[in-house]
């Protein structure tokens, strides 16, 4: 799951030379803004064939949050 999440983040966000690890924070480390976050969520929805309710978006701050959330949703 982590590798897939990492790949989607790298495809959708300008990561520069920031290495994506579980502790990476989308906002403070990658400077993801609201629009970037919505784009990422759309990409996760397509990749995992799920719908992410808007209320859940705010929970997705760290890569570890995303991995845990997606593991729960696709289980």
């Amino acid at each position: 799951m982590f590798e897939k999440v990492k790949q989607i983040i790298e495809e959708n966000v300008d990561c520069g030379n920031v290495k994506i690890v579980l502790e990476t924070d989308l906002i403070s480390d990658l400077q993801v803004n609201s629009l970037d976050l919505v784009e990422l969520v759309c990409a996760f929805e397509v990749a995992f064939d799920i719908v992410v309710p808007e209320k859940d978006i705010r929970k997705l701050s760290k890569v570890s949050d995303i991995v845990a959330y997606l593991e729960k949703r696709v289980a």
Binding site: N12, L35, V38, E39, V41, C42, A43, E45, V46
Partner: peptide
Amino acid sequence: IEKVRPVGKGVPERV
């Protein structure tokens, strides 16, 4: 303010 750029698939419908 936003820098104008192409946006990902599904974003307009979502927002």
